[in-house]
Design a binder for these strands. Structure first.
Length: 101
DNA sequence: CGGTTGACCAAGT
DNA sequence: GACTTGGCCAACC
């Protein structure tokens, strides 16, 4: 019943992201064939799939941590725990950005 | 159905 | 480098 196909797609892609890697809102929207960067963020904020979907692996297009439902500090810690290095609240997308193939 | 908001992005000032 | 504007899409009121 494709109803929340958009959200479902976002979560599905996010789930595909391996541990120790991150992605961007733009990449997700682009993979979905849309430009709804904002809608992706909105979906994450509601995140009905809370522990299932690693929303903390989603960063802004320039690697910034923007917001997080549990607090940016939490997101930062989780990413660090996964082996991702954070630099002044930013991540090296050139290294940690996961591309949906 | 219209207006507002939001974990955005890019370009312009 | 900081702020503003326009654009995009979904969810909420």
């Amino acid at each position: 019943m494709k109803k929340d196909s958009f959200n479902e797609n976002c979560y599905a892609l996010l789930r595909k992201v391996p541990r120790g890697k991150v992605t961007t809102y733009k990449a997700i929207a682009n993979a979905l064939g849309s430009k709804a960067y904002r809608a992706v963020g909105n979906a994450m904020n509601k995140n009905p799939y809370a522990p299932q979907v690693p929303c903390h692996r989603v960063l802004a297009s320039d690697g910034s941590l923007h917001g997080f439902a549990h607090g940016l500090a939490r997101k930062e810690e989780m990413l660090k725990a996964e082996g991702i290095k954070i630099n002044n609240q930013k991540v090296d997308l050139s290294i940690f950005e996961y591309k949906f193939r």
